[in-house]
């Protein structure tokens, strides 16, 4: 299947961060500060939280931890001709070792009737984060992928998908 793919801001941001670190600009910064920097460098602001339902879902997933952009890519078509079948690929460069791993991936579709569309609970035995599936979308909206690590960091990636045909009824 040939679908137009968007750029991957998280990876670009990650690269820029790496360059900054290499040039010694943030070499002495704490991991947290680097994380903030990476988030800032991602360019676009995070999509606005559209309603209380999505706010509740996000706070449930993050358990109050900051949601930062990075380490995750969400690959979706820019335009979904058929909202009944929209391909999704979620990947991450986060480690999958027994010491530290991604324990869950969440897919949130802001304007779907059931916004918290899926959760994927993982273990180090999976070896890497690379999940694909197909979802239904009601209308044009932001899609959020969130990763929660075993040490309770929360990383996110966003994609805005234009939907032509309502796939949810």
């Amino acid at each position: 299947m040939s679908v137009p793919h968007r750029d991957e801001p998280p990876r670009r941001a990650f690269l820029r961060g790496a360059l900054l670190a290499a040039s010694g600009l943030i070499g002495s910064g704490s991991l947290l500060e680097q994380g903030r920097l990476l988030a800032d460098w991602a360019g676009d602001p995070d999509p606005e939280v559209p309603n209380e339902e999505v706010a509740r879902i996000l706070s449930e997933i993050s358990a109050g931890r900051p949601i930062r952009r990075g380490h995750l890519s969400l690959d979706m078509p820019l335009v979904a001709e058929d909202g009944r079948i929209v391909p999704v690929i979620i990947e991450s460069d986060l480690p999958m070792t027994t010491e530290r791993y991604v324990k869950s991936i969440h897919l949130v579709v802001d304007h779907n009737p059931d916004a918290h569309l899926a959760a994927f609970h993982l273990s180090p035995a999976i070896g890497s984060v690379s999940i694909s599936t197909r979802i239904k979308m009601k209308r044009t909206t932001w899609v959020r992928a969130l990763a929660r690590t075993s040490d309770d960091e929360v990383w996110a990636a966003y994609a805005r998908v234009q939907v032509t045909l309502n796939g949810c009824g």
């Binding site: 959760a119 994927f120 999976i126 599936t133």
Partner: peptide, 19 residues
């Protein structure tokens, strides 16, 4: 090794791939 929690938002005849 994994457990997925789905809703009816997953497309008909669900496909999933993972490593």
């Amino acid at each position: 090794v994994a457990r997925f929690i789905w809703t009816s938002g997953i497309s008909r005849d669900p496909v999933v791939s993972f490593t």
